[in-house]
């Protein structure tokens, strides 16, 4: 064995730039960026384009910091679950300490710079979001209660409120409605995932509703939350962030989403096993379209209002 081969072996598993980027959970970040952007544009106060751009960037960095801190704390769970075992920490490419350092540094950077770029209400909301996701959800609730997804979902629901606060410097009923839309959407979205990723959460010992209360109860919960979500989503259409475009999108998508939830509710495990959870997978995919389409419609209404066409006025 030569010196070179020893070196190669030692550095074979060294982290690449992409591994550090993966710590920030880019797919979650895309949702954060999009919903924060919609919140910012839906607000009735115009924002300087550069301030708006960097504010969204700092919100994304704050969201990414939460992802890194979540991966640091949940490395043991991630190593067990099929879906997450290739993440940089369980795969051994990035150490837990490095992820912690990156998470803390980016969190401080994102919050301070958001405060300097826009205002301290927005920065305070971002700081609270990071705290909520890391401490309340990851450290406290996730391993303790089957309501983890319900309460923890609040963390993912804050970005449009932060975007709104960047523009207005405050909180308004409209920004709370956008928060509630994501908050109510999160449980059915994740419970559908838990139904077809069946053994993952069991193996990791995460008390998902499927594990603690059974799969029948999970199906009932999906339907219950979807009914409440549909009422809220359609009701939002009559507020100042809604309008004819939003309402049309909401009516169609909520009808489809409700049908999907009813299909899941009517099925039992044998039926789901027979077609490899086709209805549950379809509902999960639809849930992604559902959220992007609702916020896309709010964005269109905001765009139209610049020309005096959006909303109900």
């Amino acid at each position: 064995m030569t010196d070179t081969s020893i070196d190669n072996h030692a550095y074979e598993n060294e982290a690449q730039f992409g591994d550090y980027f993966a710590l920030l959970k880019p797919r979650v970040m895309s949702l954060v960026v999009f919903t924060a952007f919609v919140g910012l544009l839906a607000a009735p106060v115009p924002v300087h384009p550069f301030i708006g751009f960097v504010s969204i960037l700092f919100i994304a960095i704050g969201g990414g910091a939460s992802g890194a801190l979540n991966m640091w704390w949940d490395a043991d769970i991630d190593a067990v679950m099929k879906r997450t075992r290739n993440r940089p920490i369980p795969a051994g490419r990035v150490s837990g300490d490095t992820a912690l350092a990156i998470g803390v540094a980016l969190a401080a950077f994102g919050v301070i710079f958001l405060g300097l770029a826009s205002n301290w209400v927005a920065a305070g909301l971002l700081a609270f979001t990071i705290f909520f996701y890391v401490v309340i959800y990851s450290i406290w609730l996730k391993r303790w209660t089957p309501q983890n997804i319900v309460i923890g979902g609040a963390a993912g629901a804050f970005p449009p409120m932060i975007g709104w606060a960047v523009a207005t410097g405050g909180i308004a009923p409209e920004s709370i409605l956008m928060f509630t839309l994501i908050f109510m959407w999160t449980p059915p979205h994740f419970w559908a995932l838990a139904l077809f990723m069946r053994s993952d959460y069991d193996d990791a010992g995460v008390p998902m509703l499927t594990v603690t209360h059974g799969r029948r109860a999970t199906r009932n919960h999906i339907l219950g939350y979807t009914i409440l979500l549909a009422a809220l989503a359609i009701g939002t259409g009559f507020t100042s962030v809604g309008g004819p475009v939003y309402l049309s999108v909401a009516v169609v998508l909520n009808a489809l989403f409700l049908k999907g939830a009813v299909d899941i509710w009517r099925r039992d495990e044998d039926m789901s096993e027979a077609d490899n959870f086709a209805a549950e997978r379809k509902f999960f995919k639809l849930s992604l379209l559902y959220l992007f389409a609702h916020f896309g419609a709010i964005l269109i209404e905001a765009g139209l209002s610049r020309f005096g066409l959006g909303g109900w006025a």
Binding site: T4, D7, N8, Y11, E14, A15, Y20, F21
Partner: peptide, 13 residues
């Protein structure tokens, strides 16, 4: 060295 090549991407990033 091969390590330097591999690290180039990270340093550039």
């Amino acid at each position: 060295h091969e390590i330097h090549k591999r690290r180039f991407g990270r340093n550039l990033g």
